[in-house]
Nucleic acid binder design. Structure first.
Lengths: 151, 151
DNA sequence: TACTTTTGTATCGCGAACGATATAAATAAC
DNA sequence: GTTATTTATATCGTTCGCGATACAAAAGTA
């Protein structure tokens, strides 16, 4: 058994597991409002800048548009967002928050804190978090560059 | 716009993105052998210990058995593993590697190195990786504990 | 022994995620 | 100005991932 194949040596498995478990921590908080985690991410994007085309949302979340399109379609069906053809560019589909979508920001105020509590551990301190963010951002940037190159 | 809602302040979004992009880096290497990333994880588990029940594989990967069952069913169809009822406990379904499954370990020898190259960046050094592993392991342990408590 | 509870898998349904493909609109090339 | 190319979405098919449910086997209990 080669050392490189040991599950405990895999960075990817750690990221994969941490991501899934952390998403699970969000779930009860979000599903109480009929939301999923990816839908919550779309809301974060729109709360920062309302009325964005599907493509911009996808780019911001590093997702493909064929993931985002059905995602926002479901959100439209729930009355959280509206979808309207772009006026400048008729190809674009502009996604905008409804009142309900805006109000969710208030309803979800305590979500970040609740999740923060669920992951609080001795390895995550005000000193270590910036370094962790830096490392992850660096990795993400590197992966984006390398993945794009293969296209 | 509250600071806690800024996408750039979200740990979960970073983990989610890093995990997905890193998985995408595995994809061309694995799909060349007809594998997906979760199937590769099952192989890592079985290469360490062959002939395990579905439940043990699921626990090792922090997945639910209703995710692993169809996963190994597809792998069985591909001739990578076999599934057989347990002799001690007839409820268990023991998953074992076929010769083809064993040989994949040789065929995939260079995968860890290729992926290592794709994420190589200045934030990932022999000095920083152990700390990163520690932080992620710590987070994962904490999340497991808190998620279990809600059950 | 008979009954209840727990455990291990499996099935179903739904929402992602993404490769592949299709289509219309905008842009570039000629 | 017509044709070719690129761009923005959308649709389709497959594989996760997981909550809910079902069911048989094992373990615990009376």
């Amino acid at each position: 058994m080669k050392e490189e194949f040991r599950l405990d040596n895999q960075l990817c498995f750690r990221l994969y597991t941490a991501s899934r478990l952390l998403t699970q921590a969000y779930n009860p908080l979000l599903s109480a409002h009929g939301l999923t985690y990816p839908q919550y991410l779309v809301l974060l994007v729109l709360w920062e800048n309302d009325a964005q085309p599907v493509n911009d949302i996808a780019k911001r979340l590093c997702l493909e548009t064929n993931t985002v399109t059905p995602l926002v379609q479901r959100m439209e069906k729930q009355g959280i967002v509206t979808r309207a053809k772009g006026t400048n560019d008729a190809r674009q589909m502009i996604v905008s928050l409804t009142d309900k979508g805006q109000q969710l920001q208030t309803a979800l105020t305590d979500v970040p804190f609740a999740v923060g509590g669920a992951i609080a551990c001795k390895s995550l301190t005000p000193e270590t978090v910036p370094a962790l963010f830096q490392t992850l951002d660096d990795m993400i940037a590197q992966l984006k560059k390398n993945l794009k190159r293969d296209t």
